[in-house]
Design a protein around this nucleic acid. Structure first.
Lengths: 198, 198
DNA sequence: AGCTATATAGAGACCTGTCTCTAAAATAGT
DNA sequence: ACTATTTTAGAGACAGGTCTCTATATAGCT
C-alpha cells in the first residue's frame, strides 16, 4: 500500500555508532550519518526529528543493549560475590564483542546532548539509571556493605573499573587483551573483600 | 618599546577551561573563547595559530599542571604502598581544588583533537605519558607486582579508579563528598594487596 | 614629534552543518 | 491504469564557526 523503506532507523543508528566510535559524538552530524549509510539527508530527517533526537536514540539504544545482558549477568551467580564478579566480567566481554558500541559507552549522556533531549528520552535514560542504582544497591546489601560509601565502592568495582579497563585499551585503537576479564574480576573481588576486611 | 598586551595566553586558556568544563571540548570555539575572555577573535588568533593549537595547549597545560603535583605525591611516601595511597588521594584532592580542570581531565587527548596536533604538541603529550608509565612501572615493582597485568592493576588503582570517582560526582554538576579521599585510598590499598594475596 | 614594534578590533570571505520544503519514486489495493 | 500512501532525493535558506586581512591603538626610544 506504500513505498517500501530503503533505510530504516536501525541502519541509520548503526551508521551513527560507527561515526561516534571513531570520532566521538561531535562526528555524528546529520549529513555524516546520511553519507555513512549511503542515504540522503532527507532520509535521515524522515526518521529522526533532528540531531538532538538522533543523538538521544543512538545513546539510549546502546546503553539499553548493554544493560540487557548486564542485569542477566548480575542475576546469574549463586551468591552476591559471584554475581558481582560475573557483572565485572560481562562489561569486558560485551565490550570485546561490540567494540564500537563500547566506545560510545565511554562517553556520557551529557556528551550526547542530554540537556536538549525531549522529556520522553530523559525518562528512558532515568528509568535505566534507576534500575542500575536499585540493582547495585541490593548487591551491596547482599555483600554485607552498609552506607553510601559501600554502594559507591561496589559501583566502582562492577561498573567504573571495568569500563576504565576498556577505555585504557580501546582509546588509541587497540583491542582488549585476553586477560582483561580475569583482571576485571580480580579487581572487583578485591574491592568486595575490602568492604568488611581490615 | 611596544604596546602592552591586554590578553595573555593564560587568560585565554582560563576561558577555554571554563568553556570545556561546562560544555565539553566542542564548546571551545575560537569565538566562544574570545567572548568568554572579553576579547575579540583577532586577539585569540594572535595568541594561537588556530583552534587545533588552542585545544592542544589547554589540554597540555591542564594535564601537566595535574602531573606536577602527582609525581610529588608519589615520591613523598616512605614506602611504595604509602606512595600509591598518597597518589590516589592526590587525584581526588586536586580535583576538589580545581573542579573545572578536573572536568577536562575526564576527557582524553583524542577529544581535544590529538589527531590534528602539531609534532611539538604530540611530543609534549608523549613525554608526559612516558613519564607516568615509567613511574607507575617502578611503583609496581616496589609493590612486588610482576608482569603487565600487575602494572595495569596499579594504574587502575592510582589513576583510573580515583578519576572514575571524580567523574561519578562532577558529571551532573555535583561536588566531591568529604569521604572521597578515604574511599579512593581504601580502594587503591585493596588493589595493591590483591597483587600477591589470594 | 616621529619611528618602530607589538597588540587589538572587527569586517568579511569561506565552509560546514541544520533544517525545511517540494518534486519525484515506488508499491498495494481498487 | 489509477489512487492513496509512504519514502526518498536534493535544492536552498539560514546559522554559526574558522581564518585572513586591514586599520588602529599604545608603549618606548630617539
Amino acid at each position: 500500500m506504500a513505498r517500501p523503506a530503503v533505510f530504516d532507523s536501525e541502519q541509520l543508528l548503526d551508521a551513527a555508532v560507527r561515526l561516534a566510535a571513531s570520532g566521538g559524538p561531535a562526528a555524528v552530524t546529520m549529513s555524516a550519518v546520511a553519507a555513512e549509510a549511503g542515504a540522503s539527508s532527507g532520509s535521515v530527517y524522515h526518521r529522526f526529528a533532528g540531531r538532538t533526537a538522533l543523538l538521544a536514540e543512538v545513546w539510549l539504544r546502546t546503553v539499553e543493549g548493554f544493560q540487557d545482558g548486564y542485569f542477566k549477568a548480575l542475576d546469574a551467580g549463586v551468591d552476591a560475590r559471584q554475581a558481582g564478579c560475573a557483572a565485572a566480567r560481562y562489561v569486558i566481554a560485551w565490550s570485546r564483542a561490540h567494540p564500537e558500541q563500547a566506545a560510545l559507552l565511554l562517553y556520557g549522556a551529557e556528551d550526547f546532548g542530554r540537556a536538549k533531549w525531549s522529556e520522553e528520552h530523559v525518562r528512558r535514560a532515568d528509568r535505566g539509571n534507576q534500575r542500575v542504582r536499585a540493582t547495585l544497591g541490593s548487591l551491596t546489601a547482599d555483600l554485607g556493605g552498609e552506607g553510601p560509601q559501600a554502594a559507591e565502592q561496589v559501583a566502582l568495582a562492577v561498573v567504573d573499573l571495568p569500563l576504565s579497563l576498556v577505555r585504557r585499551h580501546l582509546r588509541g585503537g587497540g583491542r582488549l587483551p585476553a586477560h582483561a576479564e580475569d583482571l576485571a574480576e580480580r579487581c572487583a573481588a578485591a574491592l568486595f573483600d575490602s568492604l568488611h576486611g581490615p
